[in-house]
Design a protein around this nucleic acid. Structure first.
Lengths: 232, 232
DNA sequence: CTTTTTGTTTGCGCTGGCGCAAAGAGCGAT
DNA sequence: ATCGCTCTTTGCGCCAGCGCAAACAAAAAG
């Protein structure tokens, strides 16, 4: 994997870093490659590194003692993750598990270093705080949806969100392609694989999406939004 | 309301602030009093101030377009809230509504000032980031609970959490008193007032709690925890 | 003390969504 | 081409939890 200090300019959380800063971060970090289905870290592990994804795709999830799990976030290249431990001195433990959805590589920044960098450069902290507030806002909205909306709306919302964040627009019309299993979508929507399957089937019948094995093509995004809003 | 710079030492988010810092913050702020059921700010308002609660109790909630709402957080004195706008330059808008549950007073810190204070004093930013990470961890757990656990467990969990955060221990045994309506608890647990009522009735029959009008006394906390864990 | 307001309880019927089970389909490996 | 693995679909039965409605209870107002 080729990661250069220059590539780090794409990292939103580090947007106000200087070239020197990025070089320093780069020099103090190591690259970690994880193959599909492997883990960057597990919930409960000591949080020693913050990560910047360079290639592949990673999902952050949380499980309860019984092993049921929810997907909290999907990470695409040049997003930072696992940075919670960079801030806390006390019990720096990852609160989530980071699993590679495909072969992935990431820059692992030692928190001891990252922490002192933040202490010396307030403008870096703002980048991190901005990311945190964005995430807080998103998860609060999702929390509200989970509490107040019904499954159909939540699944539609999940697709809309995914399409916006990491959908690949196909050539002609407004087709947006997503690579997720029914189980994945269920864990993102707080429902079951069966219910997701039934909903996708119905939407396919209506021509809103096209479904395949671990693939969902959104044909009429606008219609999905209507469903998400409860107007269908 | 008497708020002194010294009192601000109790604010966890400002724990590493110097006396001078606290004085400066104090001098640049104003006190806002809001009576019961009044609002400090509404979801969507321009986020011009960060608040530190001095007295009373405030709940942070979010509503959807249809007006259904969820309670995200309950603020007790010397907690900071509404600080999301302090960090973001772009669209500083409160993502939640802050409503007083009783007559309350808070120190309103102008974000323009607070922001520059953070820029100049990295150690202050760490206090804020710490608060943010704590909150992220809590809401992620609650999100998972909402997605994977059943109502009985969630309501029990809500009571356990409330008891831990702001329960007042009664003299003798381990009684913990809480002042919330069934509706409040429902909005914190992602369920309905009816279901909460039914559950509380049953638990009262079993002697786990004592219920009153806008009052819940936890008699056997340990038993509640068992229910929350799904072992009852 | 009486009235009004606000919060609580509980019976009842309904249904959204769960989850088993079994069949079907897509994809990689040999 | 065929096998085998994994993911998906769908019929079916079930029940947790919703929400109306009406009675009840505790405060607050007058």
């Amino acid at each position: 994997m080729d990661i250069s200090p220059d590539a780090l300019k794409q990292v939103v959380a580090l947007q106000s870093a200087t070239d020197d800063d990025l070089h320093l971060i780069y020099k103090n970090s190591v690259v970690r490659s994880v193959e599909e289905d492997g883990y960057f870290f597990m919930q409960g592990d000591e949080a020693a590194y913050s990560y910047v994804l360079a290639s592949g795709q990673v999902k952050l999830m949380q499980s309860n003692p019984q092993g049921q799990q929810v997907n909290l976030r999907t990470i695409s290249p040049w997003q930072m993750y696992g940075a919670i431990g960079a801030v806390r001195k006390d019990n720096p433990v990852y609160p989530v598990t980071a699993q590679a959805m495909e072969n992935s590589a990431a820059l692992a920044i030692p928190n001891s270093f990252f922490r002192s960098a933040l202490e010396e450069r307030p403008y870096l902290a703002f980048g991190i705080m901005n990311q945190m507030t964005s995430y807080i806002q998103e998860i609060q909205i999702r929390y509200r949806e989970l509490a107040t909306e019904k499954v159909e709306q939540r699944v539609a919302n999940t697709l809309v969100r995914l399409a916006g964040q990491l959908g690949v627009r196909a050539t002609d019309e407004v087709k947006i392609e997503l690579a997720f299993s029914r189980q994945d979508v269920a864990e993102m929507s707080g429902t079951t694989l069966y219910t997701v399957s039934r909903l996708l089937s119905e939407w396919e019948r209506r021509g809103v999406i096209k479904a395949g094995r671990e693939k969902i093509i959104v044909v009429k995004p606008h219609e999905l939004v209507r469903i998400a809003d409860g107007k269908a």
